[in-house]
Structure formats: structure tokens, C-alpha cells
Design a protein around this nucleic acid. Structure first.
Length: 402
DNA sequence: AGTCCACAGGAAGGGCAGGCGA
DNA sequence: TCGCCTGCCCTTCCTGTGGACT
């Protein structure tokens, strides 16, 4: 594109009417005034947390539901209201919210405690202190706090799976040693069978109350999308059936409202880019594959270099073979490493990397037994040609593979 | 019924980077 | 500067295992 063309493209862009009125209404950070189909959960949570307004410690609560079922939204809504009532009435109430999956922020015991202590106004270094010291600092901060402290731990399942449940045990015990401060834990989990990972003592004290978030069905998703569409798009910019299509696709994905909103947003962006006035069903299809591609590419990009090399080996080998075994991958991977002058890792580690790639949904790997011929992982790749080649290019560029 | 393959995957610990306090 | 701490990535060593083969 020549430079004058570029200029006219930008000015056209400004002149052009956008299909969006307020794109923020389709993002996860958007807080709608009215949360649809979650009245029951909102009321339950509110009544559990209400005692904090009278200075009593509320029961610990556990919220379960898969991704995009409105857990975080409900918690934020209820705690915001609670916070504003508490400040109006000058009640001593502090609500901490932490997402335990935030990389480099709260994904280890130390980081979680440090983050909590910081939210209570305590200065702590991001690393360097022994864990007991961090506990002490956090404890002191709680002690000085007084009143009721509600600690909301989002995606708590991810942290427990990573570091065990001991920190939760300590947190639930904390009330025994505090006199003026009352602490209540609000755990949010994407994994419905999460309690299986926990010690029974932790389980019983943490799940005094439980609230379940069932997946949205296609009809509920449609209503949610309609509601957001009114805020997000200019009237008349959606072709008939677009909303139904988004909700049907998202309903298949475990009733994930986040996915439904993403589909709609990306479809809108694609429509805008192709300079048409209405979002069509075809844009939703394209949005679906774009979202999937972006997800996979971004996941892989953030992986360590050996993970990329292992993936490259797998992609290369599955070009002409549907299923391959760990051992085959390892020997090819070793050759690849020698070719690009990188020292290879052990088979144990590579086996771990393969299982990580499986968990990330980039490859499929299931453990099978071939009887006399041993037990191994059967690895296959279920990615579109488009994504495959993007990934291969990414690794080739990085390692100068020919 | 027992053997044995080709790994899976747990446990322990080494080595390094980043950071603290003395 | 030194000693110590944590997180992270990795290795070493190990035990466990489903099912074809004998």
C-alpha cells in the first residue's frame, strides 16, 4: 500500500460509520447493570455475606461453575454493593479480590500472600522473604485491620492444583488466632470436582456454603447477547440469526458466555474490516476460527523454547502419520536439537512438556497400552491447516530451521 | 499365570536468577 | 559483599502399569 493510500485509508476509517456503539459492552471487564439469569446466585451470595454488615464473620463460601458462567461477575457485583453499603454506614469491612491464575502475581503461595498483604497496605518485597515471614506480615496486617475481611480467591482450583491445599488450611485457621479481625474466604473454582484435590479438613471448613453456577443454555445466552447487543452495536447492524448462531456455538462450548461475547465482538470487527454494514452469519464462522487460532498461537508463543521444539517435532511428524508415540517424538526431537545447536532435554522432561501441550489443548495425547510393546502416549494433532502452518512458521523463524 | 515392554509420572534435589537483610 | 530465601526449570532415580505375548 502506498503512503497516500494509507492516508486515505485512515481518513476513510474515521468517516466510516462503525457498527459498534460501545465495544466495551462485549468485553469481560464490562459490568452490566443487570445480570441476567443469575438472580438466585446473587441472592444466595448476598445473604451469606450480609452478616459482615453487622460485624459478624460470614461463612466461608465456595462458588463452582465452568468458565464463562458468571461467577466472577456475580462476586464483583455483590461485593461492590456490599462495599458501598458498608462505606455509607461506616462499617469496618474490607473485601480483597485476587485472581490466583494471574501469572507472576498470585500463582504461588508466596505471591498470593504477598499480594494479600499488599492489599491490606503492608509493604512486602516480591521475593526474598521466607514463607513464614510473609505469613507473619500478612497476619499482622490482618490484625491491624480489624472488622471483617472477606478474601475472594478467584480460580482457586488452579493454585491448589499447583501448590497444594496447605495455604488454604492455614487461611481457614487464621480466625482462631485473631481477636479483632474476622476473616471469611470466598473461593471461586472453574473445576466442579475441585474438592477432590483437597484435604477433608480444608474441604469442610471452606465449603460451609456452596453456590453452583450451571452453564447457560442457548436460550439464556441469546438473552444475554441481546441485552449486550443493544448497548454495543448501532441499531440494525446485525443480520437476523447472528445472535442465535453465536449463542448456539457458545452453548456447545459448555454454555460459556464469555465465548459468546467474544464471538460477537470478533464477528463485528471482521465485518467492519471487510467494510460491510451488517454483521452476517458468515462473520461468526470466521470469528470462531480466528478466536481458536489466536488462542493456540498465543498459548504456544508464551511457551519455553523446548516446548516449541517439541511441538514442532510433533507437527512435523504428524504431517504424514496420524498418531505417534512419545519415544518417536523424543528421538526426532533430539535430532532437531542437534540440527539447531540446542542442547536437548531428557526424555522425562520432554514427556512432561508433551503432557503440558496436551493440557493446553494444542495437541491430543492419551496414554494407551500396546501390550507387549509397552505403554506410551498416543499423540495426535487436531488443528486446522491454517493454524498448523502459523505455528510451524513461528518456530522456524525463532530457531532458523530450514 | 507370568513376563516384559515402553513408557507414565512421582519424589527429591541441583543449579540458576532475582531479591532481601546485615 | 555474603548468606539466605523463593521460584523455576530441569535431571536423576524410581515405582507403577495395561495388555500382547509366552
Amino acid at each position: 500500500m502506498s503512503q497516500s493510500n494509507l492516508k486515505s485509508m485512515f481518513s476513510n476509517y474515521i468517516d466510516k460509520d462503525s457498527v459498534f456503539k460501545n465495544k466495551d459492552a462485549l468485553t469481560t471487564s464490562y459490568k452490566p447493570d443487570n445480570i441476567l439469569h443469575r438472580e438466585e446466585q446473587i441472592n444466595d451470595l448476598a445473604s451469606i455475606l450480609a452478616p459482615s454488615l453487622k460485624g459478624n464473620d460470614p461463612s466461608n463460601v465456595f462458588l463452582y461453575g465452568s468458565v464463562g458462567t458468571g461467577k466472577t461477575l456475580v462476586v464483583q457485583h455483590v461485593t461492590d454493593e456490599l462495599r458501598s453499603v458498608a462505606s455509607e454506614q461506616e462499617i469496618d469491612l474490607n473485601i480483597l479480590y485476587i485472581n490466583c491464575k494471574m501469572k507472576k502475581v498470585a500463582d504461588t503461595e508466596y505471591r498470593l500472600l504477598a499480594k494479600l498483604a499488599r492489599q491490606l497496605g503492608e509493604e512486602v518485597p516480591s521475593t526474598g522473604l521466607p514463607t513464614d515471614e510473609i505469613y507473619n506480615r500478612f497476619f499482622e496486617a490482618l490484625k491491624d485491620q480489624g472488622g471483617v475481611v472477606v478474601i475472594a480467591l478467584d480460580e482457586i482450583d488452579a493454585l491448589v492444583k499447583k501448590v497444594g491445599d496447605e495455604f488454604l488450611y492455614n487461611l481457614t485457621r487464621i480466625n482462631d488466632d485473631l481477636e479483632d479481625t474476622k476473616v471469611s474466604i470466598l473461593g471461586i473454582s472453574n473445576d466442579l470436582n475441585f474438592t477432590d484435590y483437597m484435604d477433608s479438613r480444608v474441604k469442610s471448613s471452606l465449603s460451609e456454603e456452596e453456590i453452583i453456577f450451571a452453564p447457560y443454555n442457548a436460550i439464556e445466552l441469546r438473552e444475554i447477547l441481546r441485552d449486550r447487543t443493544e448497548k454495543a452495536f448501532v441499531e440494525g447492524s446485525l443480520q437476523d440469526g447472528v445472535i442465535s448462531k453465536c449463542s448456539a456455538l457458545a452453548a456447545q462450548e459448555h454454555g460459556d458466555a464469555r465465548r459468546a461475547l467474544d464471538l460477537l465482538r470478533v464477528a463485528g470487527e471482521l465485518a467492519e474490516r471487510s467494510e460491510v454494514e451488517k454483521i452476517e452469519k458468515e462473520h461468526v464462522n470466521k470469528a470462531q476460527s480466528k478466536i481458536e487460532r489466536d488462542r493456540v498461537v498465543e498459548t504456544v508463543r508464551s511457551q519455553p523454547k523446548h516446548s516449541k521444539l517439541v511441538l514442532y517435532t510433533i507437527l512435523d511428524m504428524t504431517e504424514d502419520k496420524d498418531e505417534i508415540a512419545t519415544g518417536d517424538v523424543y528421538s526426532e526431537y533430539k535430532e532437531l536439537c542437534q540440527g539447531v545447536d540446542v542442547s536437548e532435554l531428557t526424555q522425562r522432561r520432554v514427556s512432561g512438556l508433551i503432557s503440558e501441550l496436551d493440557m493446553l489443548g494444542v495437541v491430543n495425547a492419551k496414554v494407551i497400552s500396546k501390550g507387549r510393546y509397552g505403554r506410551t502416549r498416543q499423540i495426535s494433532v487436531d488443528l486446522s491447516e491454517n493454524i498448523r502452518s502459523r505455528l510451524e512458521e513461528m518456530v522456524e523463524e525463532k530457531f532458523y530451521i530450514e
